[in-house]
Every structure is written in C-alpha cells, then in structure tokens.
Amino acid sequence: MTGGDDHGVNRALDALCPMHMRLDAGGVIRHAGPTVGKLFPGRAIEGRALAELFEMTRPRGAARLEALLRAPGGKLHLHPRVPPCVALKGVIAPWDDGALVNLSFGISVLDAVRAYELTDTDFAATDMTIEMLYLVEAKSAAMEASRKLNQRLKGAMIAAEEQAFTDTLTGLKNRRAMDYVIGRLIAQGRDFALMAVDLDYFKTVNDTLGHAAGDHVLQEVARILVDATRERDTAARVGGDEFVLIFPGLSDRARLSRVARRLIAQLGRPIPYQGRECRISASMGTTLSVNYAHPDAETMLADADAALYASKGRGRARHGFHPASQ
C-alpha cells in the first residue's frame, strides 16, 4: 500500500472503527484509532508493540503476531496493562504483511464509559453502545419504578392478610388464623396443647348491661388471655364468647393446669364498666396432640370442646383434660 493511500485508509478507519489498530509484521502498532488513545492517556501508542500495551487473555499469553492470527475466528480477549485494566474484546485479521485489530468494550462498556470518560464521539455512528447505555438507564428506571410498586403492593398485602387473620373487636387471631396455626403445627409434626375457653354468664352481661358492655368484656378477656400466654402461643377468638389457646411445645399437664387455674382466677374477677360490674367466669377444656397417633384439627377441637363441656357440667369456672384421666 502506498503512503498516500495510507492516509486515506487511516482516516476512513478512524471514522468507521475508532478502536482499531494497524500492526506491522513485527506486531508493532503503526496506527491506532482515536478511542484507543483514551485507554492510554498521555502515552504514545504508535511505534509500541501490541504485547507491550495489552495483556492477552485469549489466546493466553500470545505475543507474536503469528500466534494472534491463529486465534479461532480471530477472536481476542485482552486488557490494557495500565489501570483501570478494563476487559476488552477484539477481532484480528491479516492486513498486508501485518494485521488489523478492532477492539470493543463488550459487556464492560458501562465501566469503560465511566473509567475513560467516553462520549458519543468516541463511538462510530453505527455502534450500538449509545443505544445500549440508553437501554440500561431506561430499564433501570423502569425497573426501579416497578420495584417500588411491588414494595407498596407487598405492604398492602401484608396489611390485608394481617386484617384477615385478626378478630377486629379484640385484636386476637380469628378462626382462620387458628386453623392455619394448627395445620402448620400438625404438618411440622410438633407437639402442642389445645385449650378451649368458653365464658360463663356472658349472655347475662349482654342482656342486662348491653352490647357495649359485652364488647368491653370481650376486650378485657382478650387482654387477660394475651397476658397469660407466651409470645409463641396463639390466642384466638373463634365465636361470640369462645376462645382457643394453642401452646406449641407444651404437653405437660401440670403446667397447663397451672395456666388454666391462673386464667380462671383472673377471669373470675369482676370487670368494671361505666360504674357497673360485669361478672363472668370461664370454663376450659384441653387436649394434647401427643394423645393422637395422627392428630387432626377437627378431632382435637371436638375433644377440647368435650372436655370444656364436661368442666361446665361439673359447675363452671373449671378446667379439665381430654381424656379425663391418664
């Protein structure tokens, strides 16, 4: 190729492939596109050997031109020997008695744009880099908006679930929550105790002092139940004046009896309401999951209820187990 042509070729290549390099037969860079210069600020590129400026990772360690030209498909992986050493992709093809190499930032383009402070003019007009940067930013913004929406929806969902598992009058768990807790304990094969609690004389309070008094009593009962149970226990209101307590990991009859006695004593105290006294008491029945080869919620609840009605039959404000003796 003649000198005059050379100049025109270089100019054309600078515009079409601003990251190209022309190598001579000895692997020395004779001309480099303007963007290659940005990789080596303040350094001369032309006249230096390719291997001196770049470390080759594929084909690994190749220094001589013949080795580079043998790379399958002419594909090169390399990075500049000066920091920030951003990984580059390259393609090499024979040219005259030397070679032509074109570089690209590949997937590290985001880092490269920052590290080398690149602008639109550093890329060929046909290069998709600008579109890719645009897309990354646009998608990140859209993703962020979606992420925020998801967060808000999740918050709303948790609030809705919380509501659906809660008895709104007392703040205790509801029947649905109780079914869920029992189901989970059984599925996990964990031992637990189920205590059914029924208020005595509640109907009398409602009838003589009104529903507002009744509601107040239920709220007080709920408070007492929560205070008497541990963090991991569940107190649920499952009917008008019916409650169920679930004690995971508790199968000790003596301990459960103590809890029941304490509850009966506390629930037997008159509850003041607008200068009047509401008098109730509580009857209870308990069953233990260890009583069953294959515990199931329905049977256990029925057995706890049976023990509860046996207590009521023995004169209210009492607690009993199912089965009665063991």
Partner: peptide, 9 residues
C-alpha cells in the same frame, strides 16, 4: 451530559 453519569429515577 456525561454518558457514564447514571442517576436513579
């Protein structure tokens, strides 16, 4: 306008 200067929406 700095190509690499991303900002969050």
């Amino acid at each position: 306008f700095d190509l690499g200067g991303r900002t969050a929406l």
